[in-house]
């Protein structure tokens, strides 16, 4: 993008100054066909080109385009006057060197050429600023579209935070076996499953649920996972009593626990333990899900972390945070901070 614009800038610079002065030189040549005259016009052109480039450098260096239009116009106006003098002073020694005219004529020329250069630089500024404003408008438009797209994507992903089909079908299969083995327990588990399914279906339509409600579902979920992992899965709850009414996004804790099982418990032939804790902090609620295991496969997991983070930001504001860290050898914790609504 930047190189494309630099190329555009230089082509316009050379094309505009070049064509304008070629025209001037042609008229002059028709009146006075001396080669020195043509040479002079080349110097004049190079002088204006150099000085206008210096002006561009200044505009970029001091970020004049970020100023209010009135201040920008003021600064450009003064610059154009100064540069009109500068370019003509710079060019003053050239005509005598080329043997074109005397000092008196030169002084006369100077009076004409300063306002003339000023008009050229002012026109240059007009074109330059117009281009820059246009680019800025287009960039901001593109950023806006990009932002909109990413928000929609995040929303879609948030909706997708539902019961994992892999879990669901394993669960149904286990229930099928349990019916023959322990019908009463199977009936109880079916209740847990329907609770979980109902909750996850409703979660798409609700923004916030109480921590207490979410926790009840997570316990139902863990009971169902216990059918799959049996001895390999154990858990502890460490919930401060005050946090139960705090509002959190639905399925958030469930997702953290599901990840802890998927990446921690399911990977180990001996399974492991999950510790769920929730404490009140000054600004809100800290939810922590610890599991045995290690952080690996950064590629794919990185996406999972981003997903949770984005969802939290979307639903709880920018002060919400989420992180995954190794807390000791073989123990990993997912930590979410959820701010209290102001």
């Amino acid at each position: 993008m930047q190189t494309k614009r630099t190329i555009l800038y230089w082509s316009l610079q050379f094309a505009a100054w070049g064509s304008y002065f070629t025209l001037c030189a042609t008229f002059m040549y028709l009146r006075d066909p001396r080669p020195a005259g043509l040479l002079l016009w080349i110097f004049i052109m190079l002088g204006h080109l150099t000085v206008s480039h210096a002006l561009r450098y200044g505009i970029r260096r001091w970020r004049w385009l970020d100023l209010s239009p009135a201040r920008l116009v003021g600064k450009l106006f003064i610059s154009c006057i100064a540069l009109a003098f500068a370019v003509n002073l710079l060019l003053a020694p050239i005509p005598p060197i080329l043997g074109l005219n005397s000092l008196a004529v030169q002084f006369y020329m100077f009076r004409i050429f300063v306002p003339y250069s000023f008009v050229l630089f002012a026109a240059w500024c007009l074109v330059y600023v117009a281009f820059q404003y246009f680019f800025r408008y287009r960039d901001s438009e593109m950023n806006r579209l990009r932002l909109e797209a990413s928000i929609t994507e995040a929303e879609l992903r948030a909706l997708k935070a539902q019961v994992n089909p892999h879990f669901l079908f394993n669960c149904l299969n286990n229930l099928r076996a349990l019916v023959a083995e322990d019908a009463d327990k199977a009936r109880e588990m079916l209740l847990h499953l329907s609770e979980l399914l109902r909750y996850s279906l409703e979660a798409a339509r609700r923004d916030k649920v109480s921590f207490e409600e979410e926790l009840r579902i997570v316990e139902a979920y863990l009971a169902l996972e216990k059918l799959q992992y049996e001895k390999r899965l154990s858990w502890r709850l460490n919930i401060a009593p005050g946090v139960l009414p705090v509002l959190i996004p639905p399925m958030l804790l469930q997702q953290l626990v599901e990840n802890a099982i998927k990446h921690g418990i399911a990977q180990d032939t001996h399974g492991g333990e999950i510790v769920i804790s929730a404490t009140a902090t000054k600004s809100g609620l800290e939810v922590r899900v610890e599991n045995t295991g290690t952080i690996k496969e950064l590629g794919r997991k990185g996406f999972g972390i981003e997903n949770v983070r984005e969802r939290l930001r979307l639903l709880c504001g920018s002060s919400a945070s989420f992180d995954l860290q190794t807390i000791s050898e073989g123990r990993v914790a997912a930590i979410a901070h959820i701010p209290l609504p102001a």
Binding site: N170, N173, N174, A177, L178, A180, E181, Q228, Y229, E230
Partner: peptide, 30 residues
Amino acid sequence: EDSRLARAEMKRLLSAEADIEICGEAENAH
């Protein structure tokens, strides 16, 4: 198969097949 219940379910299904003999059950690759 790592889930005991899933193994129980499969054994139950296979018990209907006369020529099938389950020679072992494994919970993991090892």
